[in-house]
Nucleic acid binder design. Structure first.
Lengths: 246, 246
DNA sequence: AACCTTTGTGTATAAATTACACTTTAAATT
DNA sequence: AATTTAAAGTGTAATTTATACACAAAGGTT
């Protein structure tokens, strides 16, 4: 809007006060943020859902969301929701899409902005027992409350795209990880099998992995070396990130 | 939201009526749609802007937008705005991002959903003389009203990304086009120079161009053959679209 | 007829991707 | 201590894709 708003009643230049009253008297909607919170555990991609509390959707699962406060930016609202629900604050978070179909919410017009976030599930495990939260395998997510299945599908698609273009995935892993874990992660997100040798070759050629000179423990076979991602180096030369095409 | 909304005052299950009054009494914002309408003319990528009518931004340019009507979907609003302003309806249109910073609009809280659309500028030329519309070269767009420069930049970036992944560009061209025009289009959007032979090789290898057995007229040199894009074939096998990496 | 400009075309080289198998390591078992 | 088990770690050849690059043909202009 912004311009047609001024035009609506003719071509006179309006004051902000005029517009303000026009806006407030008429064209307003409820605005919410819904977070699609991804985690990675036991070699599976997970999503954090809450059991619906609403009559119509009793027993169904829904995304974590809340109304945007009057004086709150959208990103801020998304971070607030994540913090409230998981206790985590330093995470990857990105706006995905806005869903505003007239009848998407049974109670009233509620437009929702979807955010995708990636968290390290180990850091979160303690906070999960309160209320009706549960980590679901992404493959097992079927019906959901509201239009949340559509929002979830859109977010997963975007994640699959983005993870090839950017080093997002490391947000889902422990600080120290083996190459096998990294490959399992990509396989889980992209829902595909990758060649182990080519995967290793590709990652080593990008040269963003720091060898921690440590190895896995408690594995019943030859332990793998542990690495961390060199974010500083990536920030300096992001072009070296060869798109993971696979 | 949707869930926390129900939780806000405790853990009792709420009726929709309760929620409805809560929503309407409090957390509402004005919602608008802004369209970044791209065109292509004289080998330059253009964007359609309107002169701001608002006091604060007198003389500055802004995107075409409007408030979303109470019973109107977001996509519908975007198409309506495009239709009202250009008279065109069958175009490419895609949601880009939602901008909702608290102070983005000087009058009140206005959250805006940005859409990117691509139109064939020749089809539009007649409707442009009314009000203060103007096609700007994208390179010459500097200051804009509101946060529209940021919205514009985001949209252009997304266009540059999307045009490599999908055959969007053809929406900007006449129905019949030469390979040179097609290459000029990609060069304008991506703001780069491409090798002519490799460009041709790539497009012909995808085999989505239908040779119309016609040639350009009124060019002061050897005329090029004319083509159209085979949308039907693309729909059947979109995987043949080799990402234009260049 | 000569000139100008752009179309249309092919090949050699380099880079990236793919497919694929054996040895090494450490823990667990006997 | 020897054996078993399971995954780690490693290289190469073949294919595909990307890049760089130059000259003849066509049509309009002078």
């Amino acid at each position: 809007m912004d311009e047609l708003l001024a035009k609506k009643t003719g071509n006179t230049i309006k004051t902000f006060r005029t517009i303000q009253s026009e806006v407030e008297s008429n064209y307003h909607v409820a605005l919410s943020v819904d977070c699609v919170i991804f985690g990675f555990d036991e070699n599976k991609l997970k999503v954090l859902l809450i059991r619906s509390d609403l009559k119509n959707y009793e027993g169904q699962w829904s995304l974590l969301g809340d109304l945007v406060l009057p004086e709150e930016n959208l990103d801020t609202a998304a971070y607030r929701i994540l913090k409230e629900r998981t206790g985590l604050s330093d995470v990857f978070m990105e706006q995905v899409h806005t869903f505003g179909d007239v009848n998407r919410h049974p109670a009233s017009r509620v437009v929702t902005v979807a955010y995708c976030s990636l968290i390290n599930i180990q850091h979160h495990k303690l906070n999960i027992l309160d209320n009706e939260l549960h980590w679901h395998d992404v493959e097992s997510v079927t019906e959901m409350a509201f239009d949340h299945k559509k929002i979830f599908d859109t977010s997963l698609c975007q994640l699959q795209k983005r993870v090839k273009e950017h080093p997002l995935g490391f947000s889902l892993l422990p600080n120290k990880f083996s190459l096998r874990e990294l490959q399992n992660l990509y396989e889980a997100i992209l829902n595909t099998k990758l060649d182990r040798r080519n995967f290793r070759k590709k990652f080593f050629s990008m040269d963003f992995l720091i060898d921690l000179e440590e190895i896995e423990t408690d594995v019943p076979h030859r332990p793998g070396k542990l690495y961390k991602f060199d974010y500083a180096k990536f920030d300096r030369s992001p072009k070296k990130w060869a798109g993971i095409a696979f």
